[in-house]
Amino acid sequence: MTTVNITAENFESEVANSDVPVIVDLWAPWCGPCKSLTPILEKLAEEFEGKVKVGKVNVDEQPELARSFKVQSIPMLVALDGVDVTDHQIGFRGEGAVRQMFEKAAGE
């Protein structure tokens, strides 16, 4: 599996204590741009495997977690190193912008 489903219950183990930076995708099943972003995230998750982890947070199922990221619009990507936010993007900006975020997170 290239992406991990992030919940309030596994946030600490999957994100806060991750050995590699984590890019968290805050999304919802009814969000069209979120659906467009998914194949790009899966492709980059595979490409950057071992360097960057990709976690997905369904904002409808995890409202507390969404609030902790101050989500106002989705899709929203947040890059984390431990619990420190290092980068974020709001909206669907295409593969180039997402790739830059992965490269920055991976230190490339």
Rank of each mutant, 00 (worst) to 15 (best):
C31I: 06
R67T: 13
N17T: 02
E49N: 02
D60W: 11
C34E: 11
A8T: 06
K51Q: 15
E103L: 08
I23E: 06
P21D: 02
A97N: 09
R99A: 02
E14K: 05
T3M: 01
E103G: 11
A16H: 09
T86A: 03
D81R: 08
W27Y: 03
D60S: 13
E12P: 10
E108M: 10
V15D: 01
R99G: 00
A45E: 04
P63T: 14
P29T: 03
V78M: 07
V57W: 04
P63Q: 14
L44Y: 02
K56C: 11
N58Y: 11
A8S: 02
T38S: 12
P39D: 11
N17E: 00
E9Q: 14
K56T: 12
V71C: 12
A66K: 10
K35W: 06
A16I: 09
V57L: 13
E9I: 04
G91N: 13
F11R: 06
M1H: 00
E12L: 03
C31Y: 05
D81S: 05
W30G: 06
D84E: 15
T7D: 10
F69K: 04
E46C: 05
F11W: 00
K35R: 12
V98Y: 04
D87A: 07
I74R: 05
V59G: 13
I90A: 08
Q72L: 14
E42P: 09
D84V: 12
E14R: 03
A45V: 09
T86I: 10
N5P: 09
V24I: 00
I40H: 08
F11H: 08
M1S: 01
V85M: 15
P21M: 02
K104A: 15
G55S: 15
P39E: 09
W27E: 00
K35P: 01
V20H: 08
E49Y: 03
D81Q: 03
G94L: 00
G96R: 02
N5R: 15
G82V: 03
V85I: 15
G50I: 13
V15F: 08
E49F: 07
A97G: 07
K35Q: 06
D84A: 15
S36E: 13
L44Q: 09
G50T: 14
V15Q: 01
G50Q: 14
K104I: 12
